[in-house]
Design a protein around this nucleic acid. Structure first.
Lengths: 245, 245
DNA sequence: CGTTGCGTTGAATAAGGTCAAATAGAGTGG
DNA sequence: CCACTCTATTTGACCTTATTCAACGCAACG
């Protein structure tokens, strides 16, 4: 349990899902204009975070979900014996905080990897409105379910893939998610360190670094520190798919 | 996508959550008598499965959740290139099928590891009732959230633990879940093969077998084929917790 | 009583991890 | 603006762990 209260710096910014550019990636996905009005009333405040700030920590009382409005987050789980692992990286339009619903306390830490902003979604209120707005209820259930499916993908990655497959799959996944946000699919800035990537992929940071170097030698990517340029998508995909023989 | 329709052998058995012995482990958890009546109307049929039968398969259209009433299941994810991984083992009182909500199609296979029976929970109907019964809505959200938290535990296991820690954690976890069901915490029958355990833990079956043998030598457990007797719980816990140095 | 699937065990091997040293940038204060 | 720090990253050499490959044992079942 973490007793230190998260530093509050809550700007009361008026938020409108109905005019948000992330509408089609986020909770409002598929809602019509009338339904969006309900959401506009529900999601009324935003919270800015500086790089390194925790949005919430393991043990914190759960009260709200958060939609990433801008910036980049990681979520992290810690065991009693002090080991931790990054369990996800989160970008605009994605929903954070669902780990806390089951026990009324968060089980993860969510940390901003760059200056960021989230929309606050008070959970009791979300439940209340989704009792009235069927399509919102359905959409929320879909968001949770997709998170479950995402987790299965990560388990697959951790359980069956070799190091080079993991790193390749990681780059492809980032690329796709960047694309969905209208950013370059092939040219991007990693917000996380090699250690955080390694933690997420179940590898050591040296292994990640070596594989980045090897992919570069093989002409698959160009790596300059945190700047990645993907040169050969089919080549990366081939690495993921290929038989380990 | 799997086009083969699941073989239907649907006995119309009358089910009553309100009188079910798994009430406090399952979806009805925490509901009062009046609220349980709604559930009784919702969950009205059961479906028996033989060992090896699929409850659903990846690609099947999603329509219902399932509560394990008796027996034992595994869920499994398969990649395009034919590799698969066991992502969970499921025992009475646990809810299956939530992977299908997000896309209206299942992404997992759910397979009975022994003759089993599930209660069928038509999902549209569940959503409808949970719009009226607040505590059911809350309970369902908790069930999904706990599944997310469980997945994080598996990621931690796969990402950071050594082989002996994984096997030890696996045995402890089984033991705890058996205990919650009123069965022996220390004496049980594994329904799954070494290969399935290995797949779940991200290990090869030989590694699992070797570790069972070593744990037996060390007096932590007694292993006879699928019959496990845990002799030293603190010893097993020490293996999980200990620093790898 | 042979077949078949599952489990155990040993020896060799390869994939990643560990340890250590060198380098490169980013940020800071003078 | 420059020197200085600090952290992140890269790379090499070596080592540990788990996998691979192979052989054998066991139990259930027709």
């Amino acid at each position: 349990m973490n007793e230190v209260p998260t530093q509050i710096s809550l700007k009361q910014l008026k938020t409108h899902c109905s005019s948000c550019s992330l509408r089609e990636l986020c909770l409002p996905m598929g809602l019509d204009a009338g339904e969006l009005e309900h959401l506009d009333r529900l999601v009324s405040t935003r919270r800015p975070l500086k790089r390194g700030d925790s949005l919430y920590r393991s043990g914190d009382v759960f009260g709200s979900l958060y939609a990433v409005r801008s910036g980049f987050f990681k979520s992290r789980v810690t065991t009693d014996d002090g080991r931790d692992q990054v369990t996800g990286f989160h970008m605009p339009g994605e929903i954070l905080g669902m780990d806390g619903i089951g026990t009324e306390h968060h089980t993860l830490d969510a940390v901003a990897l760059e200056d960021s902003e989230v929309c606050i979604i008070p959970f009791a209120h979300l439940e209340e409105i989704s009792r009235e707005v069927k399509s919102l209820q359905r959409q929320f259930h879909k968001v949770m379910s997709r998170e479950l499916v995402r987790d299965q993908g990560v388990m697959m990655l951790l359980g069956t893939m070799r190091a080079e497959e993991r790193v390749s799959a990681f780059l492809i996944n980032l690329s796709q998610r960047f694309t969905a946000r209208g950013w370059s699919p092939s040219d991007f800035h990693l917000r996380m360190t090699r250690e955080e990537i390694g933690s997420y992929l179940g590898l050591k940071l040296e292994t990640v670094s070596r594989l980045f170097s090897r992919f570069q030698e093989d002409g698959l990517v160009s790596v300059q520190q945190k700047h990645i340029r993907i040169l050969d998508v089919p080549g990366l995909k081939k690495i993921v798919g290929q038989d380990p023989c």
